[in-house]
């Protein structure tokens, strides 16, 4: 999973970038580095044919992986989407804090098993449980947690941005609290 950071880096994007940015920068870089424009030709030995091949291959790979990560994946089978009755909708609309526990109770009220969620999202059970228990140590960077949360909320047909906006700040606060505040060298 840590490879995703490298992919964003290769495409000269920040990890907040969306699928549209990924496509745009991929097209731009692919076009720039596969062509024979003067800015490339002038590089001479600094950009050998082998280097070009290797770079373009990495670019393709990054594009493919990030597209998979960010693609608006609809649940594969229709009956996997959860039906919500009005009462449940109202109840969810009134939830103020989407903590892991809240997400768990929403899921349980919808009678959704984590195993079903795994079947569609292919997210390891352990991670799904860690989301619900807010075991932040399991997620090495926000980008992973975020992508899991997106899948999780989509599966339950929840308002994804709203949940993210509520959930992620707690992760960030936790992440910030474990780095040394001053003099920490930037990696």
């Amino acid at each position: 999973m840590e490879a995703f950071l490298k992919y964003f880096d290769l495409l000269e994007l920040s990890q907040e970038a969306g699928i549209e940015d990924v496509r745009k920068n991929y097209d731009y870089l692919k076009n720039l580095y596969s062509g024979d424009s003067i800015e490339i030709a002038a590089l001479n030995t600094d950009f050998s044919p082998e280097l070009r091949q290797e770079y373009l291959a990495r670019l393709d790979d990054a594009h493919e992986k990030l597209t998979q990560l960010l693609e608006n994946k609809k649940p594969a089978v229709a009956q996997n989407t959860v039906r919500m009755d009005d009462e449940l909708c109202d109840w969810i609309a009134n939830i103020a804090c989407f903590s892991g526990a809240a997400l768990k109770s929403i899921r349980e009220r919808m009678v959704v098993d984590l195993k079903d969620m795994f079947t569609t999202t292919r997210i390891q059970l352990q991670y799904l449980e860690d989301i619900e228990n807010e075991v932040f140590e399991s997620f090495r960077a926000e980008v992973y947690l975020r992508s899991y949360l997106v899948e999780y909320t989509r599966f339950l047909s929840l308002d994804t941005p709203r949940v993210l906006a509520d959930y992620l700040p707690r992760y960030r606060a936790w992440a910030a609290s474990r780095t040394t505040p001053a003099g920490m060298p930037h990696l």
């Binding site: 000269e12 870089l29 720039l32 424009s37 003067i38 800015e39 490339i40 590089l43 600094d46 950009f47 280097l51 770079y55």
Partner: peptide, 13 residues
């Protein structure tokens, strides 16, 4: 060209 140089210089130099 200038825009492309930003990427080229970072990537290959």
């Amino acid at each position: 060209v200038g825009e492309n140089l930003k990427s080229v210089c970072m990537n290959f130099l």
